[in-house]
């Protein structure tokens, strides 16, 4: 299956605390998928997060359910550390952050 299909599944796995999906949060660092094998690398929003086990387990469960024939592997990625700059516009809006363009314009000279 295509990486975009895998990402489509991960778009429906939510960080339970923030209520935002893993792709919008910018936590999906890498997807490696073929017909028998799905491997994804997922970062955490903070080191030592109690959600980490739960979140990685959720991703694994969702992928295993979506691709029953494939071997699913979910790894925790720590490099580079996650940064709020990786949030997409939807996630920024949900967290109450100003849209990227607007904040850029506000900070610009004049």
């Amino acid at each position: 299956m295509k990486p975009s299909v895998v990402a489509g599944i991960l778009r429906h796995v939510y960080d339970p605390e923030l209520g935002i999906d893993l792709v919008a949060l910018g936590l999906v660092y890498g997807i490696d998928a073929d017909d028998e094998h799905v491997a994804v690398r997922i970062a955490m929003t903070s080191a030592g997060c109690p959600m980490s086990d739960a979140l990685l387990g959720s991703a694994e469960a969702a992928l295993s359910y979506a691709f029953p024939g494939a071997a699913v592997e979910v790894m925790e990625a720590t490099d580079p550390p996650w940064d709020p700059a990786m949030l997409d516009e939807l996630a920024r809006e949900r967290m109450g952050m100003p849209p990227r363009t607007a904040s850029g314009a506000r900070r610009g000279p004049g």
């Binding site: 796995v13 209520g19 739960a54 469960a61 969702a62």
Partner: peptide, 20 residues
């Protein structure tokens, strides 16, 4: 979080699951 963890996490990916 505890409720999500014990009740809803096992259903993630298979059914619509509430967030905290």
């Amino acid at each position: 979080f505890l409720l999500w963890y014990h009740r809803y996490r096992p259903l993630v990916g298979r059914a619509p699951v509430p967030v905290t």
